[in-house]
């Protein structure tokens, strides 16, 4: 049984001009100890997915359809109270603006202890002390800094403290939403290494949400590319990044600058198109208008899932036809 099984998830928001679909028919599975990367541009719905897994959708957001099974139990069927017990202990989150996730008037250590205590009321004082030392050890912050205030930490240390907090209750799944966006390249590199280390040591699974392909490629084994609320391509890292098939993925990859000058993957590089059409939910392929390979039928019929390998598939009627 996979750790997380998301099936046909559709999420919408109520707005003044009626409901707006943010995520449509998203399905994926995550095994224990694996990291899944969700890549996409801003507004593609990747953060919404993360929020829905924690039951933290904004007031006007709602799940229209689908199931989220965590260890076989349906998260959507849980009450708010049951969810609260679930959150942090089983699934925790590293937020986008991690700098602001720490309360400036409390010591960092106290905030983490608070989190442990709320979710594990049976823990003794010594046990909690032991836990927090272990956590600080894990994220490489010296023990004597445990009871400093957030402003005494550097940006990278704050980020690591937030990671420690997310791990404080030994969750099985961590959702990291743009955990390195505001950080320096060097600090970002440290954080990614740390996350990979922790994954290895504790065997936790993770979902890594980012707009930065490079970051996701380093940290995750499985990749999901999203465009306008839909998954357009998913597969193993080696498959999606080395041999991408969906024209959007190819466009995304060829607009990604790397230090070696060009990004190397095996596909004909089409001209990059970035102005996307607004009516993706009209049924036909929303990328067709921007797509350099689109054929007449792309504009008239909905796109289809094509399987390239058992683990690699793309939502495009043209992909995989050459094989």
């Amino acid at each position: 049984m996979p750790l997380l099984d998301v099936d046909n998830l559709t999420i919408a928001y109520h707005t003044r001009s009626g409901p707006v679909t943010a995520v449509e028919n998203v399905s994926f599975r995550l095994e224990r100890g694996k990291f899944l990367g969700i890549v996409g541009e801003s507004g593609c719905g990747k953060t919404t997915i993360g929020m829905s897994l924690l039951g933290l959708l904004p007031e006007n957001g709602f799940v229209r359809e689908g199931r989220i099974l965590f260890e076989g139990s349906d998260l959507l069927a849980l009450s708010q109270k049951e969810l609260q017990a679930f959150r942090w202990k089983k699934i925790s989150m590293i937020f986008q603006a991690a700098m602001n996730a720490l309360n400036p008037v409390h010591r960092v250590g106290d905030q983490i202890i608070e989190a442990i205590r709320i979710h594990n009321p049976e823990f003794s004082e010594e046990r909690i002390q032991k836990e927090i030392k272990e956590l600080y050890d894990l994220v490489d912050i010296p023990e004597q800094r445990i009871f400093d205030y957030p402003h005494q930490y550097s940006g990278g240390m704050k980020q690591r403290a937030v990671i420690a907090m997310a791990l404080s209750c030994r969750p099985d799944l961590v959702i990291a939403d743009e955990p390195t966006t505001a950080l320096d390249v060097i600090v970002q590199d440290q954080i990614i290494r740390k996350i990979k280390d922790i994954q290895r040591q504790r065997g936790i699974a993770g979902i890594f949400i980012s707009h930065d392909i490079g970051v996701v490629a380093e940290a995750c084994q499985d990749i999901m590319v999203m465009y306008r609320g839909k998954i357009v391509e998913q597969g193993k890292r080696e498959e999606v990044f080395v041999a991408p098939v969906h024209p959007y993925t190819i466009a995304l990859l060829s607009s990604h600058l790397t230090i070696d000058g060009v990004f190397d993957f095996h596909a004909d590089k089409p001209e990059v198109a970035c102005d996307f059409s607004p009516d993706f939910f009209a049924g036909v392929c929303g990328y067709a208008e921007s797509c350099s390979r689109a054929e007449a039928q792309c504009f008239t019929a909905p796109p289809k899932w094509r399987e390239i390998t058992p683990t690699h598939k793309a939502l495009c009627r043209l992909c995989g036809q050459n094989d």
Partner: peptide
């Protein structure tokens, strides 16, 4: 109005 802003 908060909810409206979250969505936009």
């Amino acid at each position: 109005q908060k909810a409206d802003y979250a969505a936009s």
